[in-house]
């Protein structure tokens, strides 16, 4: 029988009913099964039996995977021997010196941290008219009151560490060194309020440009720059 060349195709075609099933089935499996299983498979290695920070644990009654150190133990690096650095106090009274030298860098860091943690209530000027008191929180006193201008440095450190009256403590949010940087910055803020032209050392230029602030509500606390280097 003479088979025209094209009959080959027809021959295949006659079998489509079955061939299609064979040809398509592996494909269908390759395609559809992953599609269907993708959703189901996703979690296999995604949730491994180990703890990322703050993950819930079913083992402990309080469900916390992060545990407190056993009572009476001190972790490496957490033995607070230099007590003035950690309390701001000499005996029972606040001391009036910084535990480390104040440099431009310390002040810049203090300014940035002050604007993050204190300014919501005390305002960037330190006058106590921040956003939160405007919404009903107790009004804090101005740092430029006579009493607080005379307060020793260690006192500010102590207020941050232990709180004061209606003011919450910031010990868990601000590391110790940063708290001291803020202390230095508050003192600088206080001094700046009473400063006159005579306080400017000869030869020092006072910038006359107005300061630039981030767009209100952007959530940004601009980082101060020193000689174009940001700290």
């Amino acid at each position: 029988m003479m088979t025209p060349p094209r009959m080959g195709a027809t021959h295949l075609c006659t079998k489509t009913g079955t061939t299609r099933a064979y040809v398509l089935h592996p494909f269908a499996i390759c395609l559809l099964v992953p599609v269907v299983l993708l959703a189901a498979c996703r979690q296999d290695m995604h949730d491994q039996p180990r703890f990322k920070p703050l993950r819930q644990s079913d083992f402990f009654a309080d469900l916390r995977s992060a545990r407190l150190p056993v009572q009476g133990t001190v972790a490496r690096g957490q033995l607070h021997e230099d007590s003035y650095f950690y309390t701001g106090k000499l005996g029972n009274n606040p001391g009036d010196y910084m535990p480390f030298p104040v440099t431009e860098e310390v002040l810049a860091r203090g300014q940035q941290r002050f604007n993050i943690y204190c300014a919501p209530c005390h305002s960037r000027l330190g006058d106590g008219n921040g956003m939160i008191p405007q919404r009903g929180f107790r009004h804090p006193p101005s740092y430029h009151d006579e009493r607080l201008r005379k307060a020793p440095l260690g006192y500010f450190f102590d207020v941050m560490t232990n709180g004061f009256g209606a003011m919450p403590d910031y010990a868990s949010q601000i590391p110790v060194r940063d708290r001291w940087c803020i202390v230095a910055y508050i003192r600088a803020l206080q001094l700046s309020q009473g400063a006159t032209a005579a306080d400017v050392p000869p030869g020092q230029k006072v910038p006359s440009e107005p300061p630039v602030f981030g767009e209100p509500g952007s959530g940004a606390t601009p980082t101060p720059t020193i000689d174009g280097e940001q700290r």
């Binding site: 990322k52 920070p53 703050l54 604007n115 919501p120 956003m131 209100p216 509500g217 959530g219 940004a220």
Partner: peptide
Amino acid sequence: VAGLGIDCRYCHTSVETSSFAGIPP
């Protein structure tokens, strides 16, 4: 954030220093 102007770091305190940003207690 927009209404009260609170910085991210007030609540997410460890974001600059650790792998984990931290959810405030």
